[in-house]
Structure formats: C-alpha cells, structure tokens
Design a protein around this nucleic acid. Sequence first.
DNA 1: GTGCAATAATGCACTTTGTGCAAATATGCC
DNA 2: GGCATATTTGCACAAAGTGCATTATTGCAC
Lengths: 206, 206
Amino acid sequence: MNKTSLRDLKKEATAYALANAAFELAVERGLDGFVVDDVVQRAGYSRRTFANYFSCKEEAVATAAISLAGSQHDEAEQLLASMPKETPLLDMLYETMRTQFTASLLLKMREVVALSKKHSTLEPYILSVFRSLLADAQESLWELTPGRYPEVYIHLLIGAVYGAMLPVVDGTLNVLLPGQSGADGEGDTPFEEYLETTFHYLRNGF
Amino acid sequence: MNKTSLRDLKKEATAYALANAAFELAVERGLDGFVVDDVVQRAGYSRRTFANYFSCKEEAVATAAISLAGSQHDEAEQLLASMPKETPLLDMLYETMRTQFTASLLLKMREVVALSKKHSTLEPYILSVFRSLLADAQESLWELTPGRYPEVYIHLLIGAVYGAMLPVVDGTLNVLLPGQSGADGEGDTPFEEYLETTFHYLRNGF
DNA sequence: GTGCAATAATGCACTTTGTGCAAATATGCC
DNA sequence: GGCATATTTGCACAAAGTGCATTATTGCAC
C-alpha cells in the first residue's frame, strides 16, 4: 500500500510543505487571518497545486496537525509486528496508544484544540483526519491477528478507543501531557493515567 | 438553553427548511448536482440568508440528516428521567441507544451513508454533527446521575458508544435495520444484534 | 389594534475559492 | 540521453463567503 518510490516521496513532501505552511499561518494569525494565496506563497507552490492536494484551508491545517502521528504509523506497525503472535489484541492496542501518543504529538494536538475551539469550521476536519488515522490502525490490527477475533470485536474495540481519545482531542477533557506540570489546571488528568483508566474499564467492563 | 419563543421557533423553521431543501437536492442530484442558489430557490429564501445559517452546502445537508435524531433528543431525555434514579448508567445508555436509533432514523442515515460514500467532502460534517449529538447525550447523562460516577467514566462510556456507532454511520460496517431483510448483504449484522454485542463487551470487558 | 424596538431577511459589491483544461515542467526508468 | 508518465502551473470562469446598509417582519407593551 505504501509505495516508496521517489515520486511518491516527492508528492508527500509537497503535501507536507503545504499543510505545514497552512498550519503555521493558522497558529500565527488564526484561521481567518490568512488566505490560500498566503499558504502557497510561503510553501513555494501555486494556488492550483494547493487545490490538487486539499479541498480547503481547513483540510490542510487538519492534515498537518495529525501528520506527526501519521509519520509514526510505520513505526507503530513495526512495533506491533515485533510482538508475539499470541499477544491479546487489547495489549497490542494499549502499547500502540502508549507509543503513538507521544508528548510531542499531544503538544501539537493542544495547538489544534486551541484552534479548533476558536474556529468551529476546523473541527469537522480534525475529527475526520483523526478518524481515518484510527481506521488505518484498525486495518493493521485486523491483518496482524488473522482469524483470532470476530470483525465486530475489532470494530468495537477500535471504536471505543477512538471514542475515548475524542475528549482528549476536542478539548472536552483536559489531559496533562507527559512531563507537564499540573499547575494551571486542577482537574486535569495526566494522559498516562487517562490511558490506564481507559483500558482498565475496557478490560474489566463498565 | 432551549428558548422556545415564537421568534426562535421561526428561526428553527427557517434553518430546517433550508437544510431539508439541501438534503433533498443532495439525494436527488448528488452533492455536485446543485448549487446554493438551487437550495434557497426551493426553500424560498435568499442566498444571503442561507449563508446566515450555514457555512456551506455540506453543513446544511449534514444538519438535515441528523435533525431527525435531534428531534428525538427531548423524547429520549424524558425516557431517561423516567427511569429509576439508581439505574446503572450502562442500562440507561443501552435504553437510550435502543430508543433513539429507530428504524426511520437509521433509514435516513442510510441515505446519508450513501451520500457520504460518494462525496468525501460531506463526511467530516456528518461526523461532526453526530459527535455533537452524543455530546448532548453526555451532558444529559451527567446531569441525571449526579455524583454517581467519575467524570472520566462517563467520558469513556459515551466515547466508546460513539466509537461503536461510527462504523454503522460511516458505512464501514453494514447493519441491517429493524424489519429489514438480509437478502442483499450476507455479511450484514442486524442492528439490534450489533447493539447487543456492543454492550456485552462493554459490560464484561474485552 | 397600534406603534415601537429588536431582529431577521435581503440586496449589493467585492474578495476568495473551486475546477476543468491545456500547456509546460519535472521525474523516473530503460 | 531520451521517452513515457506524472506533476505543476496558468488561465478563465462559476460558485461561494462576507461586510454593510437597507428593508421587512416579529414580538411585546400599551
């Protein structure tokens, strides 16, 4: 599925450059503070090329926001492949989440949350990109555990984890990043604890 | 939160008329088969007014698609309020899902899924509206069970259910509506069975 | 009912965006 | 190095988003 020809790498780089420029501008000036022309000028491409990759500003910003996680996908897949074949799916998933949701990723997500709160047009795209990310994870897990679980089981599990991570992403629940002090928010939950709690309930039931 | 003054009712009606016109056109001609002018012409409003209510076609279509569920929200709240105060949250949620996801709602969702598959620009808005729906449910449940559960518990539970319903909505999993024959799709899961399975895992753990 | 204040709907002008198509440019592979 | 293929670009035009001033409607008090 992942063609790594030079051509595709170049395409990826183009998309990345555009998305990143859009994301930077969004952080600097807010979603309304720039136009597509500003993005392509910064990234060094034409307006038409931008349209070839993204349907709108929001999509580009959302893509950039999650690209960090995307780049970790391969790494996560290797991790999963290196696990013993009999590892329970729940454990696999836990390790995946614990590994993928690094501090740097969560930091970037914080920025996204801030943007998302200010500009409601962004939210749908954030949700969508996040969703497709976990769809990828789902496919990986499905292929890694051939015949061991009913399809519905995997759907549910991935769905539950996705749902559990939603409040983290959309800002409903404030999580404390690894290594971050809890000074500013009393009610904040450390991310690791939240992950722990999540899987406790998933293992033992609600 | 719900002001029911005549003025607000009228506004709601306007939004509904516009959203519905958009939805109808989307079903009839596909998302690309009509423009905003067509929508406002059908609904009897001006293009400017449309812009006052929705940011784009997609948002209007998505809103209409879920409005049925929205109108059932009050009914669901009444149902919840009528339950014994000690009812476990899991049971409350199960009843809510079983009640809210009526055949007619699921039918409408089928149309949306079909649209969503054809036009990827629609998906983010569908997801978003669906998300906000369950956010409402979350708030209701939180208020109905004061102090009985930690906030994280409710977040997780709603999240899990949301995640479990996602494959149903986005078409990843084909569900069979209540009363619908399984002739066309062998692998289809009846919705009630899917709901049953979902809550079995949630109760007993994965 | 009548009038008044508040607010919704509209029209208009203008900027930004989206898209098809064809030309030009770059890329990979032999 | 040359060729087939894919990417990028420019151009032109249709569509969409937005601020502002204006008009029409609505709800409420009298």
